[in-house]
Amino acid sequence: MRLLLVLIGVFCLPLAAIAAEWTPYANARFGFAVEIPPGFALVREADNGDGQSYANGEARLAVWGHTLAEGDFKEDVAERRATYAREGWYLSYDRQTAGWASLSGTRGTSILYHRAIALCEGAAASFVLEYPDTMKAEISPLVGRLVKSLRPAQGCTNAQGAAPAAQ
């Protein structure tokens, strides 16, 4: 019985610790929030307040908001899709609704995941996660929670849910 309790502690406590290490990030300028995964350290904050970038070894995570050029989320995502094609990315996953888009693919040994959501007042928020395929087992499980955590501020219903008020 004692061995069973030790094994439960060894395997369950690290999972609880990992879950607790997600760090909330709220962007006041564009009104969105996202949770930053454990192991990702802040590298740079944009001078204009539109987002932040993080790193975990060779993995890079960029989170930002921006004003839509024509106020058209669909067109903005189409432009990003075209940019990825010009940069040599092969998009193997490409889904879009009126309120969100997810693009994922590869270029050489690199993996890319881009999630974008429409915000209120002609804006959008995105995160881009880029990492080497050698980190796939470590990074891929984080994508689902990242996707679910990217939300507009309360009162903006253009995307899949409302985030806590930006701080």
Rank of each mutant, 00 (worst) to 15 (best):
A26R: 14
S53R: 05
T157E: 01
I117C: 09
K136R: 14
T157K: 00
L112G: 06
L91T: 06
E138Y: 08
E75G: 10
A55I: 14
A153R: 00
C120F: 08
A19F: 12
R145V: 10
H66L: 08
L142V: 04
G105E: 05
T23H: 07
D47V: 14
G161D: 04
L4I: 11
P132I: 11
F11K: 01
E130L: 12
F11S: 02
N158G: 01
L119N: 05
K74M: 04
K148W: 01
R29Q: 11
G71K: 09
T109W: 10
A33R: 07
C120A: 11
A124R: 03
W100A: 03
G144L: 08
R115T: 00
L7N: 01
R2F: 09
R86P: 02
L103G: 00
A123C: 09
Q167T: 10
G9Q: 10
S92A: 11
A59G: 04
L13Y: 14
V6A: 01
Q154M: 10
E87R: 12
A78R: 07
L103E: 03
V143P: 06
S110M: 10
Y90K: 06
E87T: 06
T106G: 07
A33E: 08
N56Y: 05
T97M: 05
Q167P: 13
S53M: 06
Q52C: 11
L146C: 13
W64P: 00
Y25T: 00
R145S: 13
D72P: 05
A166V: 10
A55N: 02
L13P: 11
R2P: 03
E121T: 12
M1K: 07
R151A: 01
I36L: 04
D50H: 12
E130N: 03
N56P: 03
A17V: 15
Q154P: 03
I111P: 05
L129H: 03
A123S: 05
G9A: 06
S126Q: 00
T157L: 10
Y84I: 10
G57V: 06
E130T: 15
L3N: 04
Q154H: 07
